[in-house]
Design a protein around this nucleic acid. Structure first.
Lengths: 251, 251
DNA sequence: CGAGTTATTGTCTCACCATCGAAAACCTCC
DNA sequence: GGAGGTTTTCGATGGTGAGACAATAACTCG
């Protein structure tokens, strides 16, 4: 694999730098949005890029991305953070050899972190011109989020502490980018034990109508719903009590 | 957040090195096995480690892991290679700051790559003492492989070009580490269009019995079966012909 | 109290998968 | 050549979970 770029031919030992990217999603104004930063300097000045930063010698990648995002979004607002993947194409950024590990971060609708100048939220489904390979990274993050909404309880990281079914339905519609049946959403998430009723009721709306019950996510750590049923021995009836033993994440 | 700032000034600028790990699985002797290398030098001399190597300045991580595995397993034998994740704990290896990106590689049963001295296959379900965090990496790889066997066509990378249902069943049992019903395996994989009959028959065994039909995987690139059915609008009947449009991987 | 509005629950149906058993296709041995 | 054994394949049956839709519950307002 010959490479002719002069910058890459230098004979030093440590020529590869490592950076972290944060793909932070939040449902805002009824749509899924992602936090982007307007690049001031070249290269790709004027384009939008993901929050990015170097990795310190004495910190893990998780620590690095948390640290950098703290300057963009209050870390306490990050309800979920998981590794997405590592991008390493040789020319993914010009004139430097830079490997990037991307993380997916989720912020619940309740928090409205004040973002510094030059950062802003953008619709995840129609991105502006993005720098480098950040568009592909966002696409990847979007696909993973949407997949996990179907077979995990990851919604807890986007939703408020307590909510009505109608509100949760709007949240899922926004995050998935397509309509979702309230009826089925409720029954599926309740049967799986992802949601539980709090017993409290929402204040009835001004237009009248039955007051909605309030629900919450039962757990606030990622849990994977019983994996794809194919070729698995049938679950042995008793569906109560104990958590499934092999419920670890598969990314 | 200028991405050229040396954040931690503990001395030199480029203190973090990057390596790649290869988790290579193959079904051998009716069991899933992983290729390990016996460490000769300290640290952790005598322990078994994954195949590992540095990343060149002018190559991507994929290229690096392919290059290193070529010295352990013939690259042509690697039917599938995908990124698993990046491990970055500060003290994951002693006395150096080393970040590792792991890849999952699969070798079909038909090839028997000759491995150099000091490398050997080990049962994936009962590993020997492993060096560093390599045990956790193998566990991760194993979980991903087993999950993907259920909802993708990834079996193509473990199976021969052509095989009988009984043989494929033995393969799946070995890879999953639990019994699988032949009947269901056949029908599920055929209905999904993952397998197709070749029309040829296997030579009948010495004990007699109906000769088995031979099948093959229809495609040899990773394809994800229609994702978790939950909260999706019902598929509109016609299940023939065209591939599902949104069948991209989710890792 | 009835009309209007919203939330929740019941029921129907369909897709999918696991289990079982029968049939098909081959062998060997008598 | 037929009986019996072996292996593969196909069909029938039942259960489970989910989507669609209708019915019911609970409230406000006039």
């Amino acid at each position: 694999m010959p490479d002719t770029t002069p910058e890459l031919r230098s004979g030093q030992r440590h020529d590869i730098s490592h950076e972290v990217l944060g793909v932070v999603f939040q449902v805002r104004d009824g749509a899924l949005q992602v936090l982007l930063w307007r690049r001031a300097q070249a290269p790709e000045a004027g384009c939008w890029s993901l929050p990015v930063g170097p990795v310190g010698v004495a910190e893990s990648l998780e620590a690095a991305v948390s640290r950098h995002l703290a300057t963009k979004v209050d870390v306490r607002d990050l309800a979920h953070l998981e590794q997405l993947g590592t991008w390493s194409e040789v020319h993914r950024v010009p004139s430097r050899r830079l490997v990037a590990t991307a993380y997916l971060g989720l912020v619940p609708t309740t928090s409205d972190p004040d973002t510094p100048r030059d950062t802003d939220w953008h619709l995840a489904d129609s991105l502006p011109a993005t720098a480098f390979d950040h568009g592909a990274v966002v696409t990847h993050a979007l696909a993973r989020l949407r997949a996990k909404l179907s077979y995990t309880n990851i919604g807890f990281a986007l939703a408020p502490e307590e909510f009505t079914m109608a509100a949760l339905n709007r949240l899922y519609c926004a995050a998935l980018g397509r309509p979702v049946s309230v009826t089925n959403l409720q029954r599926v998430l309740l049967r799986r034990g992802v949601l539980e009723a709090t017993g409290r009721l929402a204040a009835p709306g001004t237009a009248g109508g039955r007051p909605a019950a309030r629900y919450r996510f039962r757990h606030h750590e990622l849990e994977v719903t019983d994996a794809f049923p194919v070729l698995r021995p049938r679950r042995t009836s008793s569906r109560g009590a104990e958590d499934p033993p092999g419920a670890e994440s598969v990314d």
